[in-house]
Design a protein around this nucleic acid. Structure first.
Length: 878
RNA sequence: GGGCGCUUAGCUCAGCGGGAGAGCGCUUCCCUUACAAGGAAGAUGUCACAGGUUCAAAUCCUGUAGCGCCCACCA
């Protein structure tokens, strides 16, 4: 424990403080009053993940809210955990096995699973340990993992219920196939990449004719799967071909020529070839005309045995070349053009995705999506910022069945049990499956479990309620579900947010959360996405080492913006570290000047009353902003109250009273200063927990409770005067005098004589009482009211509260001050003219609210006075 | 092609109907014992453009241009 003298000698070093409080900041010791609950499910980071700035941003926002509501007396629940991240994790472990000389393809499913579990046991907590350094008050005791027994139980329960409702079904249809990973993936996992590619045109010979029909394609290798050519029936050039056939020069297949408006006459040659097994649009055409669906690809993306021998086992790209060669050989090649094309790429493998005909599991989400649209439309679930709702609606309106099966092993194995004659039931284990099977089919059969595992997002979509114990109606579930809030990035609105809403409504009948807070991404200083390949990734741990966790948190919370991503430059955190340093040094000053006497707070001085008022004002705004999830606004208020009001004026004024203490008792100010500071630390705590705890500890050494346990009350004010006006007067005169001094190039160290005229007659007494204060703030010999005799020998400045004047001396250059006054005059005249024209406008007088008109009148009056004043000041000088 | 967002000080961005703001940077002065990671005094803007609504527009509406993102399509 630092004693006071140590504290005073220390410089602000975040690391020392943060290490000291690391374990205490994250414990949540607030005094819950059981009146309200607040709960969040943290987006579970991938178990393979490393802490990145996205996590830091996401969890900082949540932690601020969590700490705030906790201080506010709510019982809180913040579920923490990790996601098994199916494909990502399996890939990672397989790679490490290959490095060790083990071929993952040659070991059994069970052995591979064991390797992955071993990896998980060794590395699974890494990401959580990295999160800890951020000082989050979440439940570290019992982190969930999506493959834990209880989570798995939720997943199986969900699957079985959806299966039994008929919403989950198996279907052989065209799906996105990742040829590298050899698994199906969902639409969302396919990303479109713009590439330059070649479009080839060739002519198909029409059967029993000498005519040809020209078609274009970017994928010549698919000609082996062609079953039709579509032409537009209104197309003069092609319509006569309708009903005729083509004899494929590639494999002798018969290709029908069909008339359908699907063919766009403006594109290509106007005739389009149809390859149902390898193109989603063509597949739809095939269904319409009952065409054959011919698969020409192996699972690894090479051409299969259906194609002529010379093309077999070639990669798509190699086959493409050879087919074009062959076209040339037989004289049907027409041309090659370069076109811009988008290619489907698997987001995990980075390889081209092929549409393939496969038997897969699907969740029919159409009706679930409709229900989800309703709860967002009627405001049961609110997005913040609201414009993200449009994005949500857009996707939900054209949602397709969700392909939920993956041909990997790391994940929740699909709880469906098949018999060898194609019957199946969904059940959690073999015993239950047998019972169910008997009941359903009235027969006993040998059953084997489906080999596929579920899409990782399936378990993620249950997260807010599975972590609370669903399907059991646990105490936590009853108390904390629906959760209060979800905080996440816009990039997973479809992957995660939408699916959680759908699943929750379907399975629990409730929304999963009431508010979705969407935040943006953190980019590098050029606005580019951080990525390993670009080498522009900033590690939050490096930032913390250099600037401290508190500075990082304050930076993040200050820079959230609904409309733009956060750009991070090398020195972005400096202002926030400086701010922490400012707080630290203010703490030192207060510590140095505190009085040990615990005497009651007495009557306030005007500045004590003022700072209490400013603090109370801060507290009000702070609460409103946080309750509106606008932490950046709360941050802004915290920053400016402390720096501008508390340090620049209050401490500076108080300091003078301490040094001039011969005339008055300063105990009250000393106590008030410490008191406001401690209240401030209390509300700073959710934003910058470490420095808050360290400083509070220093001032509350004897208190048993070193933590923050509730929000501070408003500070009481015992002062009868108009402290706002009085502080304003002190500020106006001080700034006016300093400005005048500067313009006249009078050294700060020179003590000078100063006179004032006061535009508020009723403040005369106040000014007399506080003249020594202004003398000290401005380094004056004297500060006295001007009498008429001296007026000709003065050089003056105009302030909103009156004029301040120095005695003229011949060796001083007035030009800067004259220019300043002239400039002020111009701007005052502009304001006056604007005001005057408003007030002479009948429309304004009739339509504007009364208070606006009154304010305008007052402004015109004041400005006119100032103009007179400033004119006379100028004339004095010329 | 559909949708969303942005355009305000040199830079990064707040403000979103009634006097143009912050942080950084810049100029000048100051090591005044909380803090030079600081203090003081300053300078800097046709609020993208064009129309409209209004007594009043950076702020609301329409259009244009540029930038960014998402989705879809591509013969």
């Amino acid at each position: 424990m630092t004693d006071s003298s140590d504290f005073l000698s220390q410089k602000y070093t975040p690391k020392t403080i943060e290490d000291k409080w690391a374990n205490q900041v994250i414990a949540n010791d607030s005094l819950a009053n059981d009146e309200a609950c607040y709960s969040i499910a943290i987006p579970p980071p991938n178990v393979t993940g490393n802490l990145h700035l996205g996590h830091a941003l996401n969890t900082t926002i949540q932690d601020i809210l969590m700490k705030f509501y906790s201080l506010n007396g709510a019982e809180t629940s913040w579920s923490l955990g990790t996601d098994h991240a199916g494909i990502a994790t399996q890939l990672l472990v397989e790679k490490s096995l290959i490095k060790k000389g083990v071929n993952p393809k040659e070991i059994s499913r069970e052995d591979l699973l064991q390797h992955i579990w071993k990896w998980k046991a060794e590395n699974g907590e890494d990401i959580l340990n990295q999160l800890k350094i951020l000082g989050l008050s979440c439940n570290w005791e019992d982190p969930k993992f999506t493959l834990d027994e209880d989570m798995t139980n939720s997943v199986e329960e969900a699957f079985i219920r959806l299966y039994d409702k008929g919403l989950i079904y198996q279907e052989k249809t065209l799906i996105n196939w990742d040829t590298k990973l050899k698994t199906a993936i969902s639409d969302l996992e396919v990303i479109s990449e713009n590439r330059k590619s070649s479009m080839f045109s060739f002519k198909y010979p029409v059967k029993d004719s000498t005519s040809f029909i020209t078609v274009s394609t970017t994928r010549p290798e698919t000609v082996f799967g062609d079953v039709a050519v579509i032409v537009n029936p209104n197309d003069e050039i092609h319509k006569n071909f309708v009903g005729k056939e083509i004899l494929s020069p590639f494999n002798g297949n018969i290709i029908k020529i069909i008339g359908d408006e699907y063919a766009d006459m403006t594109k290509g040659s106007g005739a389009v070839k149809i390859t149902p097994a390898h193109d989603f649009n063509d597949y739809e055409i095939a269904k319409k005309y009952d065409l054959a669906v011919i698969n020409i690809l192996n699972d690894d993306g090479t051409l299969n045995d259906y194609v002529p021998e010379q093309f077999r086992n070639l990669s798509v790209l190699k086959a493409r070349e050879k087919v074009v060669e062959y076209m040339n050989e037989i004289g049907i090649f027409v041309k090659e053009e370069k076109v811009n094309n988008t290619i489907p790429i698997g987001d995990r493998s980075g390889e081209v995705v092929e549409p393939l005909l496969k038997n897969q599991w699907f969740l029919d989400v159409k009706e679930m999506a409709n229900k989800s649209l309703n709860v967002v439309q009627d405001g049961t679930v609110k997005f913040k910022p609201k414009f993200w709702e449009n994005t949500f609606f857009e996707w939900m309106n054209k949602i397709q069945p969700w392909c939920i099966s993956r041909q990997i092993i790391w994940g929740h194995r699909i709880p469906v049990w098949h018999s060898d004659d194609g019957k199946s039931v969904a059940a959690k284990n073999l015993t239950m499956a047998k019972q169910k099977f008997l009941k359903k089919y009235n027969e006993e059969k040998e059953l084997f479990q489906d080999n596929d595992v579920l899409d990782t997002w399936f378990s993620s979509s249950l997260w807010p309620f599975s972590t609370l114990g669903w399907p059991e109606e646990t105490a936590e579930y009853k108390k904390y579900f629906p959760t209060s809030l979800l905080v996440t990035g816009f990039d997973i609105i479809f992957f995660w947010v939408a699916r959680m809403i759908m699943m929750s409504l379907e399975l629990t009948g409730k929304v999963p959360f009431k508010v979705v807070y969407i935040h943006n991404l953190i980019r590098d200083k050029k606005g580019q996405k951080m990525s390993k390949t670009m080498g522009n990734v900033v590690d939050p741990l490096d930032l913390i080492a250099e600037y401290g966790t508190d500075a990082l948190r304050f930076f993040l919370s200050s820079n959230i913006s609904p409309h733009s991503d956060i750009k991070l430059s090398p020195n972005s955190l400096e202002p926030y570290k400086n701010f922490m340093n400012k707080i630290w040094n203010a703490g030192k000053f207060i510590d140095l000047n505190k009085e040990d006497s615990q005497s009651q707070l007495g009557n306030d001085s005007f500045y004590d009353a003022w700072i209490s008022y400013r603090f109370n004002n801060l507290l009000d705004k702070y609460k409103v902003h946080i309750e509106n999830c606008e932490v950046e606004k709360a941050s802004y208020e915290l920053y400016h109250f402390f720096w501008d009001d508390f340090c620049d004026w209050y401490i500076e004024i108080a300091k003078i009273s301490f040094t001039n203490s011969k005339n008055s008792n300063t105990t009250n100010t000393r106590n008030n200063m410490k008191d406001i500071f401690c209240r401030y630390l209390n509300i700073l705590y959710p934003f910058a927990p470490y420095i808050s705890l360290e400083l509070k500890d220093n001032f509350d050494k004897d208190s048993i409770n070193k933590k923050f346990t509730s929000l501070p009350e408003k500070s009481t004010i015992e002062y009868t005067g108009d402290f706002q006006k009085e502080v304003q007067l002190v500020k106006d005169f001080t700034i006016g005098i300093r400005s005048l001094r500067k313009n006249l190039l009078i050294k700060p160290s020179d003590k000078i004589v100063c006179f004032y005229t006061n535009s508020n007659n009723n403040m005369n007494e106040f000014l007399l009482e506080n003249k020594t204060l202004i003398e000290s703030l401005c380094n004056l010999v004297s500060f006295t009211e001007l009498d008429n005799d001296t007026s000709s020998d003065l050089i003056s400045n105009l302030t909103p509260s009156g004029t301040v004047s120095f005695l003229k001396s011949s060796d001083v250059d007035f030009s800067t001050q004259i220019n300043k006054l002239k400039k002020d005059l111009v701007s005052l005249e502009r304001i006056y003219n604007l005001s005057k024209s408003k007030l002479s406008n009948k429309g304004f007088l009739d339509s504007a609210p009364e208070n606006v008109v009154e304010e305008e009148k007052a402004k015109a009056y004041d400005t006119a006075e100032s103009i007179d004043d400033i004119k006379s000041l100028i004339s004095q000088l010329s």
